[in-house]
């Protein structure tokens, strides 16, 4: 499963994309992905919040994830 990273998420991980491999127990939902990111990179727990986008739409915690989805971590936005 590939996850796109932007803004501070990219800085925390040190890359613009991460691959979650089968041996990591691939997250099955948005909520599981959020928990996975905080476990793997504790700095995500220090953010004001972060959202997940599935196929370039904001996704609620209960949305299931498929490995073919385009998944992205959306840290607090600050455009304008």
């Amino acid at each position: 499963m590939d996850v796109l990273l932007f803004g501070i998420a990219k800085d925390i991980v040190g890359r613009s994309e991460i691959q979650i491999l089968a041996e990591d127990a691939v997250p099955n939902s948005v909520q599981e992905l959020k928990a996975f990111m905080i476990r793997k990179f504790p700095d995500f727990g220090k953010l004001s919040s972060f959202a997940v986008a599935v196929n370039s739409e904001y996704a609620e915690d209960d949305v299931p994830l498929d490995r073919n989805d385009e998944i992205a971590i959306i840290p607090p936005v600050s455009g304008g």
Binding site: F6, A72, P75, P76, V77, S78, G80
Partner: peptide, 21 residues
């Protein structure tokens, strides 16, 4: 400002900050 995924990094003399992070 609330919903569009755009991120702003402020560059100061000695540090950089992702706004609202």
């Amino acid at each position: 400002k609330e919903t569009v995924p755009i991120w702003k990094k402020e560059m100061f003399e000695n540090k950089t900050i992702w706004v609202s992070a």
